[in-house]
Design a protein around this nucleic acid. Structure first.
Ligand SMILES: [Mn+2]
Ligand SMILES: [Mn+2]
Ligand SMILES: [Zn+2]
Ligand SMILES: [Zn+2]
Lengths: 141, 141
DNA sequence: TCCTCATTTTGTAATCATTACAAATTTATA
DNA sequence: TATAAATTTGTAATGATTACAAAATGAGGA
């Protein structure tokens, strides 16, 4: 489905800014921050305002076209709304996806609760950064 | 174990501020924010500075005496460092615990990653707030 | 085509949690 | 007690997010 139709299907009128922001998220699965999105689109839309990025992301989230990743310092965004886990590398800042097939919880403590969002968020150091560190230590020239 | 000994066991010198902050977290399992902690302790320690609360919490976290709950607006703290899930009520702001016995993930995508923290964070509306809402609608006087 | 009104976008100022930092205080040690 | 190290404090700075009102856009009707 084209981005325009995706927006229309949720009753959102497809302005240039909205199309571009959603398209950026659909094409760049890097869980970008508001600032990353802004920096990458301001070339194509020179008049773009950061407020528009914030407003649009809030709207897209409301319409469940994107999800938000709770992060320590800044919020990051994801056009993949299927349930999956996220791993944030504390070294390079990258956020990786990982699939989750099942969670066993004793729901007795949150029985009758109405759940709207589920976040699985790991932190640590990614394989690339571990390797990089190893190389640095190995190369005692 | 007394709070003082708990601190000593991690090599942290037990100042009055540190004792009180950790003790507060141990006795009040409400996942308080920095501000809640500060407001509740400033009576006992009138000279207490919010910076000290921040510094102490960062130290206690480093020493793994407490864990941090990633939240949308503000960071919340938990002296229970055992792995468990958190549910935040979007209505009243309360954070509930729930036990997790097992998570099945396909680790192939994050193989060789070094994991340091695992967060399971749900949001929604708690049973109390659902009931409250129902009562309000039912009481059409 | 031009006008009008609703929607959307923009820019700036305000907010608010967190951090930086240097001075003041407390604590440990000799 | 004297001295140095560790800790705490208060204030200023930072930085992401939000509020808000003016400017731009765009669809529909005369
Ligand atoms: Mn993702
Ligand atoms: Mn907890
Ligand atoms: Zn990395
Ligand atoms: Zn509630």
């Amino acid at each position: 489905m084209r981005t325009i139709d995706l927006l229309k299907s949720k009753g959102v009128s497809p302005s240039q800014q909205r199309i571009q922001i959603l398209e950026y998220l659909l094409k760049n699965k890097i869980h970008p921050s508001v600032d990353t999105i802004f920096q990458n689109l301001v070339n194509q839309i020179p008049t773009l305002s950061k407020t528009t990025v914030y407003n649009t992301l809030a709207l897209l989230r409301e319409k469940q076209l994107i999800q938000v990743i709770i992060d320590n310092n800044e919020i990051r965004y994801d056009a993949d709304t299927e349930f999956h886990g996220h791993f944030k590398c504390l070294e390079c800042g990258a956020i990786y996806d990982f699939p989750i097939s099942e969670i066993k919880i004793d729901i007795s403590s949150i029985e009758n609760f109405q759940i709207s969002e589920k976040h699985i968020y790991y932190t640590g150091i990614c394989a690339l950064c571990i390797k990089k560190k190893g190389d640095e230590n190995g190369n005692k020239t």
